[in-house]
Amino acid sequence: MTTVSMTVNGEAVSADAQPDTLLSEFIRETLDLTGTHVGCDTSQCGACVVLVNGDSAKSCTMLAVQAEGADITTIEGLATNGELHPMQKAFHENHALQCGFCTPGMMISAIDLVTKNPDASEAEIRHGLEGNICRCTGYHNIVKAVSAAAAEMKG
């Protein structure tokens, strides 16, 4: 057992973890932030994507100890003071979710994408979201939402 410290959604957290505790387990079971979903647990589906120092990462394929000192953002960290993040607003307005299981990871990946490429084309959005699978196959509206959010985030 070792103590792991990191910043999660702006708050400093410190808790015990085993060497083999996955970041996804640490977030969901230790921190009780269950908005980060675990779908395949084999780094395919992207439901577990969180931001690690501003870069999207599959938290099921990272050890909690690898996030020592890191700045983590999960889906719970997007809204501020009850105000939805532009990506959340765009997903809502464009009906970019059906069952909602992939949505947390999809939005975090999309935020990574449009933060680094504010003028992403439809093709670039589709390429950038290759690591996130929507089993409802609702990709069309997801791409629309990401484009809308990109425009909104550019201001």
Binding site: S43, G46, V49, V52, D55, S56, A57, K58, T61, M62, S109, D112, L113, G128, L129, E130, G131, N132
Partner: peptide
Amino acid sequence: IGDQQVRNR
């Protein structure tokens, strides 16, 4: 290579 999340790690 892989997807963006794989390329980030």
